[in-house]
Design a protein around this nucleic acid. Structure first.
Lengths: 250, 250
DNA sequence: CTTGACCCTGACGCAAGGTCAGGGTCGCAG
DNA sequence: CTGCGACCCTGACCTTGCGTCAGGGTCAAG
C-alpha cells in the first residue's frame, strides 16, 4: 500500500495538500500501519485524482466535496456556474487592462478624468513647474472627493478655468514665480506684487464666473482650510493677501 | 477635522480598510482627539485617495506603499508589470474556459484524453452498463497515474483494445452479464461460463498483442491488486477463474 | 550506529480586509 | 438629566489553499 508521499506523487500534488484534504474531509482518513503512517489503496488514489482534476479546472474545494458525493448532473451545473464565473473574471480583467492602457497612453498620472489629464499634460508641456501641478492635482482630488455627485460639473469648471487662464495670462510664468516662493522667505514687496497679480486673476475669473459651487459643506470647509495650511509660509502669505484684496467679491 | 468614518466615506472605502492601512504602515497614524478618536486632515485624504486608486487598478498594498514613497518612474514600471500579470491571468482563464468548453461539448466525464472520452461515449451509446464503464475509467485513471510518461502509449493501447473488442464480440452484452454479477452471489456454473468467455477475449487480445507494458513497478503491482480486491465477490471469482484459464500465456 | 529520507502532529503565515465582542463617546431628543 | 442611536476604540478570529517551519518518530541502507 502507498505512503502519503507516493500517493501525492502519483496524483501530481503534494503531501501537504493531501493532509489538507483529510482535514477538511474531502478525502477519508485511510488506515494506519503499525507505526502510525497513513496507508492508501487504489480507491484513495482514484478519489484524489478526481479531486485534483476538478481543482485544476478551478473549482473550490468545498464544491468539489459536494460534487464527488452528490449526483452526477450537479457536476454539469457546477461547470456551468464555474464557466460563468470565469467569464465574469475575464471581463473584469479586460476592463482593468483597458483602463491601464488608457492611463498609460495619456497621462503621466493615473486615473484623473480624461479632460483633466489632458489639461495637466498641457500645463506641463507649457512649462508649469511640476510641484505646482502636483498641488493643483491635490486640490482637484479633494474637490472631487468632497462632491462625488458633481464630478462632471467640477471637471467642466476646472477645464473652463484653465482655458481662460491660458488666454488671459502667461500662467506658466506666474506659476513659476509662485512656486519659487516655496523655498524662500520672501520679502513683503515680492509677496504683495504677486498677490496683486493673483487678485486680478481671481477677479477676472469671478467676472467670467460659472461657479455653481453647490452645497456648502462643513467638511469641505475644514478640509480646504487644512489643505491651505500645508502651504509653505511665503506662499500662504501671498494667498492671504490676495484674498484680502478680493474680499469685496464675496 | 475628519473622523475615520468620514474619511473612509470620502475615499469610497470602509473604516476597517483604513485601520488596516494604518496597521501595515501604508497610511501614517493621524493625531487623536481628547477622546482617543483619530482625526484626519486633507493630506491624509489625499494619500488615501491615491491608495484607493492604485488598489482599484489591482496593485497589491505593499507595492502601493513602495510606489507612493518612491520615485515616479517606478509607478510606470509597476503598471507595466501589472499589465503583464493581468495578461497572464487572462490567458490562464481563457485556457481554462476552453478546456471547460471542450469537456462539456464532448464527454460526460471531465478531462480524459479525447480519444478515450469518445471511446467511453461510444460504449455508453452501445448500451454498456454505466457501472462497468465507471470501473473501466477507474482502471484507466490508475494506469495513467502510474505511468505518466507513457500517456500516449496507454491511450493508444486502450483505444486499440476497444476497437478490436467491438469487432470481435458483442462486448456490450458481455459487459452486461458481468455487471449483473455485482448484485448477486452467482453459482459456479455461471461463473465458469463467463470466465471461459473472458479467457477467450484475453487470449485473442494477447494474440493481437501490442503490449509494451513497460517498466514493471512495485507500486503498480500493489495498486492493481488492491483495486481488484474492491470488486464484488462474484465478479472477482470470475476474474480469478479467467486468469487461471490463461495462465499459460504469461 | 549513523545518516538521509520519509512520516507524524501542531501551529503560524499569506492578502485584504470582514465580522464579531466588549466597551467608550458624541450629539440630539424628550 | 437621561436615553438612544450612531459613531469610535482595541483585540481577536475568519476566509482560501495550502507552504513552511518546529520538534520528534520511523525506515532502509551503509
Amino acid at each position: 500500500m502507498l505512503t502519503i508521499g507516493e500517493l501525492a506523487g502519483l496524483a501530481g500534488t503534494t503531501v501537504r495538500a493531501v493532509r489538507h484534504y483529510h482535514r477538511i474531509g474531502l478525502l477519508p482518513e485511510p488506515p494506519r500501519d503499525r507505526s502510525g503512517y497513513r496507508r492508501y489503496g487504489a480507491a484513495a488514489l482514484i478519489r484524489l485524482l478526481r479531486v485534483r482534476r476538478l481543482r485544476e479546472l478551478g473549482l473550490a474545494l468545498d464544491r468539489i466535496g459536494e460534487l464527488l458525493d452528490g449526483p452526477e448532473p450537479a457536476l454539469h451545473e457546477a461547470l456551468d456556474a464555474l464557466d460563468a464565473e470565469l467569464a465574469a473574471q475575464a471581463e473584469r480583467i479586460a476592463a482593468q487592462r483597458e483602463h491601464l492602457a488608457r492611463l498609460r497612453a495619456q497621462s503621466p498620472d493615473p486615473d484623473l478624468p480624461e479632460p483633466l489629464a489632458a489639461m495637466f499634460a498641457k500645463a506641463a508641456a507649457d512649462g508649469a513647474p511640476a510641484r505646482a501641478i502636483a498641488k493643483e492635482k491635490e486640490l482637484l482630488l479633494l474637490d472631487l472627493a468632497l462632491h462625488p455627485e458633481r464630478t462632471d460639473a467640477i471637471v467642466a469648471e476646472y477645464v473652463g478655468m484653465f482655458e481662460r487662464l491660458v488666454q488671459r495670462t502667461d500662467y506658466a510664468e506666474l506659476a513659476h514665480r509662485f512656486d519659487a516662493l516655496a523655498d524662500v522667505d520672501a520679502d513683503p514687496a515680492t509677496v504683495d506684487a504677486l498677490a496683486v497679480e493673483l487678485a486680478a486673476v481671481i477677479r477676472a475669473e469671478h467676472a467670467a464666473g460659472d461657479r455653481t459651487r453647490g452645497a456648502w459643506n462643513p467638511l469641505a470647509e475644514t478640509l480646504m482650510t487644512d489643505w491651505g495650511s500645508t502651504m509653505p509660509p511665503s506662499q500662504r502669505r501671498v494667498m492671504e493677501r490676495a484674498v484680502e484684496l478680493v474680499a469685496d467679491l464675496f
